[in-house]
Every structure is written in C-alpha cells, then in structure tokens.
C-alpha cells in the first residue's frame, strides 16, 4: 500500500497542496480528477518523491518518508518500484524506442529481453520499435513510454494525463491495456480527464480542487456526486466531452 498523509507543498507563497491524504492500493486503479491548477500534478510528483513535500508522511509499502526530511539523512529512492509516465513523454531522443525501453530494464529485470517481446505484442509496437522518438507518432511514443515503465515491473505506476494528446482511438487502445495491469498487481494512480474510463475501470476516484481532496470514493460518485463542486465539474465535463 502507498499511503500519504497530511501532504503540504508550496511554491513560494503559493500553497498548492493543503494537507492531502491518499491511499493507493496495489492491483487497483485510482483516478485523480479535478480542474486545471488544482494541484494534481504536484501531488503526483510529491507521491513519486520527485518533488519533496514540505510537510507530511509518505509510506511506500515498508518504507516511511517523513517530511521535511532530516538534513544530511539518506533517503532511499523509491524508483523504479514507483515509476511514472508523464504527459510529455520524456523519451530519450538519441536512443531508439527499443533502447529507451531496454536501457532502464537492464538494471532491474533479468527477463527484459523476453519481456520486451511481450510488451511489443501487447502494445502493437513491432513495426516502429526500432525507430527514433522523432520518427514515431505521439500515440506510438505514448505506448513506448508506458512499456518502458511496465518492463521495470513497478509496484506503483503513476500516469499524468497520458492520453491528453491522443485521439479517441489511440486513447482507448492505451486505456484498455491499463485495465489488464490490475491483474499484475500494479497499483495505478492516474490523473485523467477520461471520465468514461474512470467510471468503467477505476477502483477509486478522487476529485481534487484548490489543493484539497473534495470527494473520493468508488466510480459511482461520478454518477451521483455528493458535493456540489464535483457535480458542477462533471456537468462542465459533459459539455466539453
């Protein structure tokens, strides 16, 4: 279980996260939704320990991180047990897509050579896997970025709006694959605007606004929200869809 409690984060005098508590279970999909600028990406980066929270506690299975961290203390890195795929994919441009996947895999996956074949089949990457990132479409790169994360056998996979730049068909293709990952025991925490996917596949949905969690629960909260704010957000989302 990945648990975070009392997470605070500020940039200068802007208080972005205001005491967020969250749990991400292995083998479950947790979808985080909310308006732009509400702190979703900041929360994801804090949970992935890419930006340390100012205050709070994060427990990743047996490891506990209390913030602020003690000065000169050693902080064991949680990566790639916790890994992330971002909206901008961050594929290394001088390596082929295959090398992008294999370089990190060599460190932590003895069966990387075998596993990459499975991933190539799963994400239908055979015809472009040896291209460079700038020779691939956004959808193809998106699949590679997810494959690069999966070959690391992570326990928790964080996804930050990974389908926002894709068309409906490509989004559906990736999101469908994600549903299979639950079976592998991976805890998926994703920021998404794909409410249809959240309704169908999520185990928990969290609605965030102004640096706080306003409402959370099973996907049915998207049909019958308790809070007025989630209700108005969903009605606007309907208009935008």
């Amino acid at each position: 279980m990945l648990k975070a409690s009392g997470i605070h984060k500020a940039f200068g005098d802007q208080h972005i996260l205001k005491g967020v508590n969250i749990r991400i279970a292995p083998g479950a999909i947790t979808c985080l939704i909310g308006p732009s600028g509400c702190g979703k990406t900041t929360l994801l980066r804090a949970l992935a320990l890419l930006d340390y929270p100012d205050r709070g506690r994060i427990e990743i299975d047996s490891k506990t991180y209390d913030f602020p961290l003690p000065k000169n203390g050693h902080t064991p890195a949680p990566w790639p047990r916790v890994t992330a795929v971002f909206q901008s994919l961050f594929l290394w441009p001088h390596l082929t897509l295959r090398e992008n996947i294999m370089l990190p895999a060599q460190n932590c996956n003895e069966n990387a050579e075998k596993d990459i074949h499975g991933l190539i089949e799963l994400f239908e990457m055979r015809h472009f896997i040896d291209n460079y990132p700038n020779q691939a479409s956004i959808g193809q790169r998106q699949r590679v970025a997810v494959a690069r994360a999966l070959i690391l056998n992570p326990r928790y996979l964080f996804l930050d709006e990974i389908t926002s730049a894709l068309d409906i068909e490509q989004s559906a293709r990736i999101l469908t694959k994600l549903e299979h990952l639950k079976e592998r025991g991976i805890g998926i925490f994703m920021i998404t605007h794909a409410l249809g996917f959240a309704k169908r596949a999520a185990d928990e949905v969290i609605f965030m606004e102004g640096g706080k969690i306003v409402e959370q629960g099973p996907p049915k909260i998207l049909d019958k929200p308790d809070s007025n704010r989630l209700q108005s957000f969903l009605s606007l989302a309907d208009i935008a869809a």
Partner: peptide, 25 residues
Amino acid sequence: RQYLIAAKVTGLTRRQTIFRIQLPL
C-alpha cells in the same frame, strides 16, 4: 530536465544517467 526526471523514475544509476543520457545528448 525532463530527461533527467525520466532517468530518475526509471531507476537509472547516476553513472548511466551521465554516460548514457547527459553526455551523448
């Protein structure tokens, strides 16, 4: 910086990050 973040979250060692990512680029 995003390439360094990618190196971090995929668990590359410091040596790998310098010699396989930063230096070639």
